[in-house]
Each structure stands twice: as structure tokens, then as C-alpha cells.
């Protein structure tokens, strides 16, 4: 049953040292506020799952919170490389990080299998690719009907998934629209699901019958955090802050500059600051 609470409490009650955690969002609706709260609370030894770890995972890895990364594309979308992730993988700074790498197709299938309660996913994938040689979790199965050999990967089943969404109603049902990504699967695959939302409304009475909705009984905790996806965006609320993604390339290039930026913008900040950051990016409703 979804319980409404402040973000600080939602993160404290649902994330633990050593957890396998997914902060999902496919460019759109990235749960930045939740990730920053996790950074402030200083969790350790996390296994971080995400198809497209971008700035927030760069920050979490740079702060030494992750022992392992499970991902399919570790880049700053449209900008370049993740410099903190690179520093961890190439130089072990501030700690070494184990890497389990997949393709998008495999991870999407693995989340879906997790949501479906299956132990693994099968796909026509990885043919000729190098990843099966370096990732022992990529195996194969033979179709019992046609004999076709298919790739097999374990399902993804996080201890906790964090996502950001447009709105919740008073009961705690959650509505996601626009580029819906992998969030529904990631929430349903996890033991606990924590959602930050732009706003809480009375009900979804006027909504289209086929919208992407997570019923309140699939969600553990909801926190209202306007602007909580920044510098990612929330469709219908505010635009992507592309300039921030470009700026991150400079900030993250240097260890000291990175630490100073984190101090000013994350450690000394609070969830309420996100609303201010998106003021100039708001779209007309």
C-alpha cells in the first residue's frame, strides 16, 4: 500500500547498505531527487542497476556508494562519456566498481521477466557480439519447439526501485506519461517501489482509459517533489535542461571540482530545491 511521506523518510525506510537498487528513467523522468537524497544519507556497497546510468549514477559512483554496476549504456546522453564512472573503472577511484554489462534489449527483457516473476529472459540477441565472452550472466537456451538457440539472461529483481512520475492521486495510484521507458517493469520487478511525483491530485477520473498507471497497492512510498527529475525532464511540466548535461562534462572531469560541486549542489541541498531549478524550464500547461 502506498504511503505518502517526505522524501527523506521514503529513502531512509526503503534503502539499505548493500541493497540492489534501480533508479530508473530512460532519459525522461530520471529520479534525480531520490538519488540525491540517497547520496546525502550516504549509503554504501550498493549494486546499482540501470539501463542508461547517466549523471546521477556518475555522481553516486563518484561518491563511492556503488560496489557494482549493472547497465547497458553508461554515457552522458548526447554529450559523451561518464567521467566519474570511467575513473572508478579505469583507476579504482574512489573505489573499484564491478561491472556487469548487457545490451538494452537484454536489460529490457530482464526487467520484464522480473516484473513477470520469471527467473530469466530469452531473446534473439548478442549474436556475434563480444559481451557474452566477458559477462558470465549471458548464456543461451534452445527453443524446445523450433530448436532455435536464443540468448538467456537472469531476470532483474531489485530490492528497491526508485522512479519519478507526473502525478499521484489521493489514494496513491501513480500516472506516468510520455516516454514511459522501463519504469513500470522496474517498479513491478522490485520488492519495494518508491515514487517521487510532480504533484498529488484528487483523482484520475478524466484520464484516458489506457494510460500507464501503477495501482497504489504496487507502490511502497510516494513523496511529492516538484522538479524532482531535473536536469532530466517531466513531460507536460518542464523541459530537459540540456545545458546542465553539457556542464556536467566539465564538472565531472576533475575530482576536486566534482567534490566541490557535490558539496554545494547535493550534500548542502534539499529536496525542495528542485522546484526552483526547473522554474525557467516550465512548459505551458
Amino acid at each position: 500500500m502506498a504511503r505518502f511521506m517526505p522524501l527523506e523518510q521514503a529513502v531512509r525506510e526503503n534503502l539499505k547498505d548493500g541493497d540492489t537498487a534501480a533508479f530508473e528513467g530512460f532519459t525522461h523522468l530520471i529520479p534525480t531527487a531520490a538519488a540525491h537524497e540517497a547520496i546525502r544519507q550516504g549509503f554504501k556497497d550498493l549494486t546499482l542497476i540501470r539501463m542508461t546510468p547517466d549523471i546521477v549514477y556518475d555522481q553516486m559512483v563518484g561518491m563511492g556508494m556503488a560496489k557494482k554496476l549493472l547497465f547497458s549504456y553508461a554515457g552522458n546522453p548526447g554529450v559523451g562519456l561518464l567521467r566519474r564512472v570511467r575513473d572508478a573503472v579505469e583507476n579504482g577511484w574512489p573505489r573499484s566498481v564491478e561491472v556487469e554489462e548487457h545490451s538494452h534489449a537484454a536489460m529490457a527483457n530482464a526487467y520484464e521477466a522480473g516484473a513477470a516473476g520469471l527467473p530469466f529472459a530469452a531473446l534473439r540477441g548478442y549474436r556475434g557480439a563480444g559481451l557474452p565472452e566477458v559477462n558470465p550472466n549471458i548464456k543461451s537456451v534452445t527453443c524446445p519447439f523450433t530448436g532455435e538457440k536464443l540468448a538467456a539472461v537472469p531476470s532483474v529483481r531489485p530490492d528497491v526501485t526508485f522512479i519519478h512520475a507526473q502525478k499521484a492521486d489521493k489514494k496513491g495510484n501513480v500516472l506516468i506519461e510520455g516516454i514511459i521507458g522501463i519504469q513500470k517493469e522496474a517498479a513491478l520487478a522490485a520488492k519495494r517501489a518508491v515514487v517521487t511525483v510532480e504533484e498529488v491530485v484528487e483523482d484520475f477520473a478524466d484520464a484516458h482509459p489506457n494510460l500507464c498507471i501503477l495501482p497504489h497497492w504496487t507502490i511502497t512510498a510516494i513523496a511529492e517533489v516538484p522538479g524532482g527529475a531535473h536536469p532530466s525532464y517531466t513531460h507536460g511540466y518542464y523541459d530537459r535542461d540540456n545545458a546542465s548535461y553539457l556542464e556536467w562534462d566539465d564538472v565531472s572531469a576533475d575530482r576536486d571540482r566534482f567534490r566541490a560541486w557535490m558539496e554545494d549542489n547535493v550534500l548542502k541541498a534539499k529536496a525542495e530545491d528542485f522546484a526552483v531549478r526547473v522554474e525557467k524550464l516550465r512548459v505551458a500547461k
Partner: peptide, 9 residues
């Protein structure tokens, strides 16, 4: 370390 394959494979 480059970003990786994403959807490419």
C-alpha cells in the same frame, strides 16, 4: 571505458 553498446548489438 566508452559508454558501451546500448541498443546497438
Amino acid at each position: 571505458r566508452l559508454p558501451g553498446g546500448g541498443g546497438a548489438p
